[in-house]
Design a protein around this nucleic acid. Structure first.
Length: 765
DNA sequence: GTTGGTATCTGTGGA
DNA sequence: AGATACCAAC
């Protein structure tokens, strides 16, 4: 290779370059926020390819599809289209892809269903009901997380029963039958030909462990280079799989893991930073190389230093000092609000102000919160201020009822044993197969230890119900037949009509009903795109598989973050968790109150609190130039007002990185005037500041010459006698009553709507 | 079996 | 406040 082929190395700092070219043997890269981690990973893969390794011999595991896509795109910039042949994807999608090929070796159909967390929850609920357990102590969510935890630690139901500690915990929590539920749940998933999210990992491990037909060797030989992103968020099971693939006699152990212990925020789902420490230990004797990326290229110094200070309060961490040479930058702003509504308004006001002062576009701005439920108020104010925004997380498209119903049909067509899909749609639209009938079928299935589908025509039910059952079974069977040869779209279009779903929605003329119909059509359009567009990304199969089964495998692993339609010039609203890996010029981190952030759930243990602090660290390190923290002394929760103290995290930031309190106070005081008398000191500082400002902002009455209002147009810079200089953002209303939306940069509450026929405005240019 | 109303419960994060 | 679970009446 000559020098030009390696030109990409020039854009790297010393440590980054070393991490890129150390392609062989075990490598650990500890990468602080904004330290060019993705850059190192992608260049490293490109470098491996340049050295003659085939792209499909490289396995790169990430946590989000978005990260995988970005990685592929960036590799392609160096090595071209070959990049698409790299096995880059999320743990779940890559493993699903392998399992689709190998599932039959461990007793699953290759078209297995993927149960999402709703399916899991509902199945666990069904089992709890069948066992006649008290549903107050057996909360499906709690049980689900217990089972998930067990699977992530390679504990089978049998091992669970033998585990004194786990059994004792369950007894203490008055839930001694969890192990029974776990056992039944596992059997029911298997009977339904279904894997939940944990199974995608667990069953792959099982496959490699049992090693039928030398499947383990097959993948060991295939993946000559393995890379893992966000290693601090892997759980025990994921690490066990990685080790199986790369650690064996004669193995070259070409494994590179990249992570940051300070950004580990998924302990609640079994992730453990112990994996990083173990990795160092496990591969020490194989000459592990460790690189620390400590230069932050993202944020200015106040932000980086504040983050450093906060994270040192955690107990355990890999020592490192993140630094930036981007200059001091701005101090961190703090917004204190009395209520959640006021917080929303303040944040929206500040967004307007920043957009004007710093010429930020919407996409450079993000509002981050601890819980998705907080999004609503910000949404309201952004809408009111005409600021475009997109909300990520919360209820995604695929979780809507009408979409889940449709997908229920599709799932049952692909896999008739899928119990959750069958239960969802067997009587929707209504076809006279009610709860009693389903109950009878369900009992019969339990007796014969088989699926509902198999026994549904043998149940002892009324002849009317039996007719419906037969009709339903016939319908699904016919489509299952068609799905063998027809593509996903043709099947979906047909069943949408023949199931009666489409007609049902068409008959609903309410606004909600029309929305649902629109959503269903959007889903069908999506399927059409999947079938017609050869460039469409296929996460889990070879590119040309346009079958319904292939489509379903794909969407099962999509998240809200993957929605391409959400790109564009929008303010981003998302949870701190989803913001990991992203960056914004200006970040608003809201709801900094005790019991909210840190979450009340985390307050009980020091480990929980440390994880919340890491989450806080992740949040503030998303900001490049502007960081604003806000909290509200009171907010509504479940219909009643709750009072909260300011978050300890906010107080952990050293004052020298925070904008001085007097100027912050003065900003609040006007609002406080409305709701109650401000304190003397606050009033004093407010007054001072207002006076100073008034001088510059008011127009001089002597020289002020208003123009006729008809001349005012959007985009103009204008002068208002009282409000000072402003910019006309837009004009609406009819000719007799035109209303201008004007941004006055010098006043509080800067965006005003003004009726032009009354206003006196002077055009400035 | 279906419908519509009232009581009850919910309190994080996500592949 | 909003979703869901449950129950009585058609």
């Amino acid at each position: 290779m000559n020098q030009t082929e390696h030109s990409y190395l020039n854009g790297l700092n010393d440590v980054q370059r070393q991490a890129v070219i150390a392609t062989d043997g075990p490598v650990l890269v500890v990468a602080g926020p904004g330290s060019g981690k993705t850059r190192v990973l992608t260049y490293r893969i490109a470098h491996i390819i340049q050295s003659g390794v085939a792209p499909w011999e490289i396995l790169a595991l990430t946590f989000t599809n978005k990260a995988a896509r970005e990685m592929k795109d960036r590799i392609a910039q160096v090595v071209g289209m070959r990049a698409n042949k790299v096995w880059a994807g999320t743990f779940h999608s890559i493993f699903a892809r392998i399992l689709r090929v190998e599932a039959e070796k461990i007793g699953y159909p290759s078209n297995f269903t993927i149960y999402d967390s709703d399916d899991t929850k509902s199945l666990i609920g069904t089992i709890i009901k069948e066992m006649n357990l008290d549903k107050n102590s057996y909360n499906p969510n709690a049980v689900r997380s217990r089972i998930s935890q067990a699977k992530s630690n390679l504990i089978t139901p049998t091992l669970y029963r033998q585990n004194q500690e786990l059994m004792e915990q369950d007894r203490a929590a008055k839930r001694p039958f969890i192990v029974e539920i776990y056992h039944k749940y596992t059997a029911r998933c298997k009977r339904a030909g279904a894997m939940d999210f944990d199974d995608l990992l667990y069953r792959l491990f099982e496959l490699l462990q049992k090693n039928p037909d030398g499947v383990l060797e097959k993948y060991r030989e295939k993946f000559r280079y393995v890379l893992v992103d966000e290693f601090q968020d892997t759980n025990h099971l994921q690490y066990a799989i990685v080790r199986k693939l790369v650690e064996y006699p004669e193995s070259p152990r070409n494994i590179c893991v990249v992570g940051d212990d300070a950004q580990s925020i998924y302990a609640f789902r079994g992730a453990t930073i112990q994996n990083i420490l173990d990795f160092e230990k496990d591969f020490a004797r194989h000459g592990i190389q460790v690189f620390k990326l400590e230069q932050n290229y993202r944020s200015t110094e106040h932000i980086v230093q504040a983050a450093n200070e906060v994270i040192t309060l955690n107990r355990n961490q890999i020592p490192k000092k993140i630094w930036s040479d981007k200059g001091e930058g701005q101090k961190i702003k703090i917004i204190k609000a009395l209520t959640d509504t006021e917080e929303g308004k303040r944040v929206a006001d500040t967004i307007l102000e920043q957009k004007n002062r710093y010429h930020l576009s919407n996409e450079e701005i993000a509002i981050l919160y601890r819980t998705n439920a907080q999004s609503r108020i910000f949404e309201e104010y952004l809408r009111r201020y005409n600021i475009p925004y997109k909300i990520f997380g919360g209820q995604s498209f695929y979780q809507r009822k009408e979409i889940k119903d449709m997908i229920g049909y599709l799932r049952l067509i692909v896999n008739q044993q899928d119990e959750e899909a069958l239960r969802r749609i067997i009587n929707f639209p209504k076809r006279g197969i009610g709860a009693t009938t389903v109950e009878k079928i369900s009992n019969l299935a339990a007796d014969q230890n088989t699926s509902l589908w198999e026994v549904m025509t043998q149940a002892n039910v009324s002849s009317r119900a039996m007719n419906s059952i037969k009709g339903f079974k016939h319908l699904i069977s016919a489509y299952a037949e068609r799905a063998q040869t027809e593509n996903a779209f043709d099947v979906a279009k047909g069943i949408a009509r023949d199931s009666g779903l489409l007609d049902l929605l068409k008959g609903d003329t309410t606004v909600d009903g029309m929305n649902r119909l629109e959503n269903l059509n959007a889903l069908l359009d999506g399927i059409k795109t999947f079938v017609e567009d050869d460039d469409v990304e296929n996460l889990t199969a070879e590119v040309n598989d346009k079958s319904l089964a292939s489509y379903l495998q794909n969407i099962a692993l999509l998240t809200d973050l993957d929605d391409e339609s959400k790109s564009g010039d929008y303010v981003t609203l998302m949870s701190v968790h989803s913001a990991k890996g992203l960056e914004f010029s200006s970040v608003f981190l809201v709801g900094l109150e005790e019991k909210l952030f840190p979450s009340f759930m985390a307050l009980e243990s020091p480990e929980g609190l440390d994880e919340e602090r890491r989450l806080f660290y992740v949040a503030i390190t998303r900001a490049e130039k502007h960081l604003t923290l806000s909290y509200a002394s009171s907010r509504y929760r479940y219909g009643n007002m709750r009072y909260n103290e300011v978050s300890r995290f906010l107080e952990e930031i050293p004052r020298d990185h925070v904008e001085s309190t007097s100027s912050i106070r003065s900003r609040f005081s006007r609002e406080e005037n409305r709701s109650g008398p401000p304190t003397a000191t606050v009033r004093g500082s407010f007054k001072e500041r207002t006076d100073a400002r008034t001088a510059s902002m008011k127009a001089d009455p002597e020289t002020f010459k208003p123009n006729p209002s008809s001349e005012i147009q959007a985009g103009m810079k204008i002068l208002h006698l009282k409000f000072g200089e402003g910019k006309v953002l837009s004009i609406d209303g009819n000719t007799d009553n035109r209303i201008a939306t004007i941004y006055f940069k010098e006043i509080d509450n800067p965006q005003r709507r003004i009726m032009l026929k009354f206003a006196k405005l002077q055009i400035l240019d």
